[in-house]
Design a protein around this nucleic acid. Structure first.
Lengths: 137, 137
DNA sequence: TATGAAAGACTAACTAA
DNA sequence: TTAGTTAGTCTTTCATA
């Protein structure tokens, strides 16, 4: 990870479809170098995946979840990551243990998801915040 | 937004570099249709951007921020979205007003960012959680 | 780092609903 | 009039030297 890697990542974060040739021009190197470095960063999992940022549903929310003390959060997190409206699951420090990033069609969709979460055996309590607006960095 | 759109989005979310021809095969339509629909969804901002998910820094965190009541969160959010380590900024409902998604090189990097946030005139208080692990949906 | 073959994306003309 | 298809052309990628 040097300056060149970071420069390449910056370009890809803004638009991951930028051709290697164009990235090369922007960061001042050759197409082959950009390609090799992107491949290396994917192997090293510096780049986890090529993806899209969507605004599919009209309601985004974060659901903060507390689980029972004797539960390992990995299992329930993996399960919840598979749920349709769940964008990501974070295991976090602080009062709660898990945070879900959620993108649902409407508030009912968010509510269904909260219910689904509360119905999990391991879940002790939840706290939900609606995401009113978003800025990408 | 119909089933076909959703099917296309599902493929792109997992790997946004999947060729249109391959997506077409998977969802049962032609290459041109996939391309047209992706373009339409970008125009409609259903797809906000093509991007990458990275694990650049070794420390990810969410910083929850309360701002003074007379402040509009838009201005400060736009400013903070420009900060190097900030992945995204959410304006949220609940006790705090703004949540920063942060990806820093180390805990010192996170701490610097907290300090920077607290030094903003509009910021009343902050609360930070480290992201211990992440699952993508 | 260059170069050329192969893969993919784009243009535009066409068809069907 | 809009959405989908297809053939031909152009661009990008990727392996080789």
């Amino acid at each position: 990870m040097d300056e060149l890697d970071r420069a390449i990542l910056d370009v890809l974060r803004r638009d991951s479809r930028t051709p290697y040739t164009e990235i090369a021009d922007e960061v001042g190197t050759s197409e082959g170098t950009v390609r090799n470095r992107v491949e290396r960063m994917m192997d090293d999992e510096v780049i986890e995946r090529f993806t899209i940022a969507t605004r599919t549903g009209n309601v985004k929310a974060m659901i903060e979840i507390s689980v029972a003390v004797d539960v390992d959060t990995e299992g329930i997190s993996e399960r919840m990551a598979e749920w349709e409206e769940v964008d990501f699951v974070w295991m976090v420090s602080g009062e709660q243990d898990v945070v879900l990033g959620v993108d649902a069609a409407d508030t009912r969709g968010v509510n269904d998801l909260i219910t689904k979460a509360r119905n999990q055996e391991e879940v002790v309590s939840t706290k939900t915040r609606l995401i009113l607006d978003e800025q990408l960095g």
